[in-house]
Each structure stands twice: as structure tokens, then as C-alpha cells.
Simulated scan of single mutants.
Amino acid sequence: MTPVPQSPYARALGERIADLHPRLRTYFQAVPEGMVGVGIGTFQRVGTLVACCGRSCACSSSAG
């Protein structure tokens, strides 16, 4: 049996992916076979935002 490909997001969400709005669910699921995902643009910030010192800031910024 061939495993069904999953995006990392779908794998992390598990069954909760069904709770997402249909457009978001499509965005976070794996790219269908025979299709490609293409993105354009420039990142303004790379990484994940985390809470530190009671405010949202980039994890690379210093706390202070």
C-alpha cells in the first residue's frame, strides 16, 4: 500500500485539520500529485514569532 502524502502542517494538526476553513485546509494539505506549488515574493521576516517579555517579538531579538 502506498502512503498518502501529507504536508508537515497536516501531520502536525492531525484530525484537527478538519476544523479549518476549507480554503485554509486546502492551503495546508499536501500539493496534489501532478501539481506544483509556486510562491513569489520576499520574506519580511524569517522564523517563528514567540512570546517573550509579554510581547510578540522575533525569537532572534534580545529580551530586554
Rank of each mutant, 00 (worst) to 15 (best):
A51S: 04
G47R: 00
V38K: 03
V36N: 09
M35R: 12
I40G: 13
V36R: 14
S61T: 07
A58K: 11
T42D: 03
S60R: 06
R45N: 08
F43D: 00
S61P: 03
G34C: 08
G39S: 10
P32R: 13
V36P: 05
R55T: 08
G47W: 03
A58Q: 14
G39R: 10
I40C: 04
V36K: 10
V46W: 11
Q44G: 14
G37W: 11
A51R: 06
V38P: 02
C52Q: 08
R55D: 05
P32S: 07
G39N: 05
P32Q: 10
G41T: 08
S60L: 09
C53S: 15
V38D: 07
G47T: 03
P32I: 05
G39P: 01
G34I: 07
A58C: 13
V46A: 12
G41L: 02
G39A: 08
V50R: 09
A51H: 02
R45T: 11
E33S: 12
Q44L: 13
G34A: 06
I40D: 04
T42I: 09
G47V: 02
S60H: 15
G54A: 11
V38R: 10
C57W: 00
A51F: 04
V38N: 00
A58M: 14
R55V: 11
F43Y: 02
R45D: 06
S61A: 12
Q44F: 04
C53G: 14
M35K: 12
T42Q: 11
A58E: 13
F43R: 00
E33I: 13
E33R: 13
C59R: 15
C53W: 02
S61F: 00
G37N: 10
T42C: 02
L49R: 03
S61L: 03
M35F: 03
V46G: 03
T42V: 12
T48F: 02
A58L: 14
S60P: 01
S61V: 07
C57A: 14
R55Q: 08
S60Q: 13
